[in-house]
Design a protein around this nucleic acid. Structure first.
Length: 268
DNA sequence: AACGGAACCTGAAAGC
DNA sequence: TGCTTTCAGGTTCCGT
């Protein structure tokens, strides 16, 4: 689930729930999620702190406190959900933050079955946060900069788009969808793209992210990963289905260990 | 420097 | 039906 649109959705939720609040409960149930931050350090650093805001860069979240930060990465299966303060721990709950504001308490629970996510307290920005490339939503992507950086690569364009130091927040789905919008074959050498083609990829990334965001933050608040929810993407996970553009069957391949779906007729 | 592959985890779905 | 295999939207480490 979590690529840039899902993380942005989580950011908005956390900001809505916790901004301005004082943390009255801060528990790390599963120490492995701390990635070096112990359960003890987690509670000590967060209890009594005020949440000034919740920010996002790429797939990372940064809760800005009156003293220090809490960094949250959702990994592959992480999500923040709201619960009642007296609710028991939910299934797969790995951490909990309760915030009190004007006499009302909101309990935010961090769920993560596979535990690839992380929750770390820090006084300064994490190296992983600092290493992120431009965020498509609030920095924008400079075409000439992208062209120059792609020219230094030897591999294919699709795996290159997953490099978080190139563009922050693009994951396997967004990269797959963006290349379909841009009509670029995912197997093309990154350095072979013309300026015009790079511009099309950049537009494709923005278009795909905004499209996903509008679907996920729509009035029905549907989550893509919920069982029964139908795949909202144009080509991702649609191997052998007809191309939405030309109706020829889509192909599924594996690049750098990640699956890619594309139309060999429309994408050149 | 930058690439592909394995490792880190668990659950759902598909295969037999 | 029940057991086994495959796959999953991310990052990091390691060897090349």
């Amino acid at each position: 689930m979590p690529e840039l649109p899902e993380v942005e959705h989580a950011r908005r939720s956390l900001e809505h729930w916790l901004r301005g609040a004082t943390l009255t409960v801060a528990v790390l149930h599963e120490h492995r999620i701390g990635r070096g931050t112990t359960a003890r350090a987690f509670g000590r650093a967060l209890l009594g702190r005020h949440v000034l805001g919740v920010e996002r860069r790429g797939k990372w979240l940064r809760l800005v406190l009156d003293e220090g930060f809490l960094f949250s990465h959702l990994g592959m299966t992480g999500k923040w959900v709201r619960a009642a303060p007296d609710d028991e721990p939910l299934r797969f709950e790995r951490a909990r933050l309760d915030g009190k504001l004007r006499g009302r308490t909101i309990s935010a629970r961090y769920l993560d079955p596979r535990m690839f996510g992380s929750l770390r307290v820090a006084k300064e920005d994490l190296p992983a946060w600092r290493a992120l490339g431009p965020d498509p939503l609030h920095d924008g992507i400079d075409v000439d900069d992208m062209l120059a950086r792609l020219a230094r690569r030897s591999g294919a364009i699709k795996p290159a788009l997953l490099d978080q130091s190139l563009i922050a927040g693009v994951g396997n789905i967004q990269a797959t969808e963006a290349l379909f919008f841009a009509r670029i074959d995912p197997r093309r050498a990154a350095r072979s793209l013309s300026r015009k083609e790079v511009a099309a990829v950049v537009r494709g990334i923005l278009r795909s992210i905004k499209r996903t965001l509008s679907i996920e933050s729509g009035p029905s608040i549907t989550y893509v990963e919920e069982p029964g929810a139908k795949n909202p993407f144009l080509v991702y996970d649609r191997g052998d289905e007809p191309c939405p553009r030309c109706r020829r069957p889509l192909h599924k391949i594996v690049q750098a260990g990640r699956s890619t779906t594309f139309c060999s007729h429309c994408q050149r």
